[in-house]
């Protein structure tokens, strides 16, 4: 099998893996790195469950091959909490606002929202809905996910009320 060596970092840790070029980044993270927090919901780029940050950008890891990650810096859901497991403000906001039920879409939403909260521009309601419409959740009806990101944005001083229409 024509496997290749690829080196990248995940959550700050260097990983050296051997993959077939056709193995997606999602499968590479899950199978080669054992990082199963990144979930696959559709494998064709619609649901966003597999969203991770690649060099700071939210990326559907089912739409990128592992070999393309050579030299990249990747962040996954496993890197959000403190090493002792303490939840970060975004994770805590999801917990307190009941932003998850089955939890399967949650890592993708967390990574998408992480990017949103780290952007230099403050977040408003319209942009929140626009960006979070990238991902699918089948359990919550979204309201609590939006509330959670709003709460985290407020806590992190990233929230701005929309200009009145």
């Amino acid at each position: 099998m024509n496997k290749r060596e690829v080196v990248f970092t995940v959550n700050g840790e260097t990983r050296r893996v051997l993959v077939e070029p056709r193995r997606t980044l999602a499968d590479t993270l899950r199978e080669e790195c054992g990082l199963t927090g990144t979930h696959l919901g559709c494998e064709h780029g619609v649901c966003g469950a597999c969203t991770v940050l690649v060099d700071g950008q939210p990326t559907r890891s089912c739409l990128m091959f592992g070999v393309q990650a050579e030299g990249a810096s990747i962040r996954t859901v496993e890197g959000l909490a403190a090493p002792d497991g303490t939840l970060n403000p975004l994770q805590r906001a999801f917990w307190e606002n009941h932003g998850l039920q089955c939890g399967y879409c949650t890592p993708g939403f967390l990574m998408l929202a992480t990017w949103l909260l780290e952007r230099p521009t403050p977040l408003d309601e319209e942009e929140l809905r626009h960006v979070l419409s990238s991902n699918l959740c089948r359990c919550t009806g979204y309201q609590n996910i939006l509330a959670a990101v709003r709460a985290a944005a407020r806590e992190l001083d990233r929230w701005t009320e929309s200009a009145p229409a």
């Binding site: 966003g48 950008q57 939210p58 990326t59 960006v131 419409s133 990238s134």
Partner: peptide, 12 residues
């Protein structure tokens, strides 16, 4: 461009 898919798709 705001009508093209979603932000993660638009970035790549």
């Amino acid at each position: 461009v705001r009508h093209i898919a979603h932000p993660p798709i638009r970035m790549r």
